[in-house]
Design a protein around this nucleic acid. Structure first.
Length: 449
DNA sequence: TCTGGGGTCCTAGGACCC
DNA sequence: TCTGGGGTCCTAGGACCC
């Protein structure tokens, strides 16, 4: 039977004996379990089965292994709290390069099954499976299972998988059973899942909308889905109408296959404790944000047309200013003027600040920039030379080898890179790791001296 | 959820133009 | 000087995500 795009879940979910095509679309969502911690356990076998957390460099939990979660470790806990409930906790610094390599491998594996893979985040993917049953000689559930198996055996981590009619539903499915879950949610079973699902668990519905929904008497996903179109349009804007459709089994979010080529914006922010009322110090933080953001922009061959500066006070109040630049640039030397101007528009003596940040927006590709007649070409070329030297030095000797004097008063913090607590620093341990990297096809990472 | 860092998209309202 | 109607662009700000 041909699927009618207007058929809503109200029809799909009816107990009618008529068999409608149960998979108008088959969207898979894959979510790696405790990804960072799992990568650590895959690379360091001696960590397997043990409570591990990552995020040592910042002193907060970035990810906790399931063993740690089982012991009550949660995000947002301080390290001392964690040690109290779990004295044998293993704390490691985040190693984003390794996680990115695992991520890359994960997407490669998925693309063996379908070309329609969306790299949604470092540890999540959407895959459009629609129409693949023929070539795999099996139902979607079996294809999904094969994908899960491939990722798990080849990478040594576990992942949770959900398959349903839309991205929003697939996300609900993958979350339903974690870790190492595989949940199939065909049209006629969806309402079972939505019935017990608090509406705030739906992807795209945050605290604000949840509060609003509550006023309308809606607390579960099923209650939301069962409202008619007219009701939704009267009370909500487009994003929520889209979610409503997705929940109804009508796929409106495309699986975006193109890898994200470019950024809309680049931002760098930093929180410091204790909060500071020292003008020089706060500006230095901002200056450092700017240098970092610019370096990233240059790395991606982008230039900014707008600069946004923001400060967060002790009381978590944010203020910001936005500045249009006379010409696009990714050089701090061009931007210190605007930065200073923005800073003094925001900064109030006597206030204490806990965070500074910078956003580079209106990004344009380096090559496509038109300079005006009034731009000083010689100045620009000089800056190009200076900063390409800076970038080379940073690559060779580390991130903050060279920087502007204004960034100096941030009082450099001790770098924790590479030191890992509770892991004996023995040679064979290191080799174990390297063997594993090779087994996984990861390049051996050079140790900085 | 007592709060880290990095992103995206949508909407309302004003400015400006015919 | 006042008055319509309609379009586009920009910006601020909100809301949400991992």
């Amino acid at each position: 039977m041909k699927y009618d795009a207007d058929t809503s879940l109200n029809n799909l979910m009816s107990t009618s004996p008529i068999t409608i095509h149960s998979w108008p679309r088959a969207i898979l969502h894959l979510d790696a379990d405790a990804f960072f911690a799992s990568c650590e356990q895959a690379v360091h076998p001696e960590l397997r089965g043990k409570p591990v957390i990552t995020g040592k460099e910042r002193g907060i939990v970035a990810a906790a292994s399931y063993e740690a979660k089982a012991r009550g470790v949660q995000r947002g806990m301080s390290l001392s709290e964690i040690r109290k409930i779990c004295p044998d906790i293993i704390v490691v610094s985040s190693d984003y390069e390794t996680y990115s390599l695992f991520s890359l491998r994960m997407f490669e594996i998925l693309r063996r099954f379908s070309p329609d893979v969306e790299e949604y985040s470092i540890d999540e993917a959407f895959v459009d499976l629609t129409g693949l049953r023929r070539s795999f000689h099996g139902p979607y559930g079996v294809i999904a299972q094969k994908m899960q198996e491939a990722v798990e055996t080849e990478l040594g981590i576990t992942v949770s998988v959900g398959v349903s009619l839309s991205k929003v539903l697939a996300k609900i499915a993958s979350k339903h059973n974690k870790p190492h879950g595989l949940t199939l949610m065909p049209g006629k079973e969806i309402h079972h899942y939505l019935e017990k699902l608090p509406v705030e668990k739906v992807w795209g519905i945050g605290p604000n909308t949840t509060a609003f929904l509550k006023k309308l008497g809606i607390t579960t996903a099923l209650q939301f889905v069962r409202k008619d179109e007219e009701f939704i349009c009267r009370h909500f804007s487009k994003p929520y109408y889209d979610i409503w459709q997705e929940l109804n089994g009508i796929s409106v979010y495309p699986v975006v296959t193109e890898s994200k080529g470019s950024y809309q914006s680049i931002s760098k922010a930093r929180t410091f404790t204790p909060p500071s009322g020292d003008e020089i110090f706060v500006f230095a933080q901002l200056s450092r944000n700017l240098e970092n953001a610019c370096a990233k922009a240059r790395r991606h061959k982008l230039m900014a047309g707008r600069l946004i500066v923001f400060l967060r006070t002790q009381e978590f109040k944010d203020t910001g200013v936005e500045m249009k630049l006379t010409r696009p640039t990714a050089f701090p030397s061009d931007l210190f003027g605007p930065l200073r101007e923005g800073f003094y528009r925001l900064y109030r003596t006597g206030r204490f600040y806990r965070q500074t940040g910078v956003v580079l927006a209106d990004l344009k590709a380096e090559g496509r920039i038109q300079y005006s007649l009034f731009d000083d070409q010689a100045e620009i070329e000089k800056a190009v030379k200076v900063y390409s030297a800076v970038d080379q030095l940073s690559e060779k000797f580390g991130k903050y080898t060279v920087h502007h004097a204004a960034s100096l008063p941030t009082k450099r913090q001790v770098q924790h890179e590479g030191d890992r607590e509770n892991i004996p620093k023995r040679k064979d341990n290191l080799f174990k790791g390297e063997n594993n990297r090779q087994r996984l096809g990861l390049p051996v990472i050079q140790v900085k001296v």
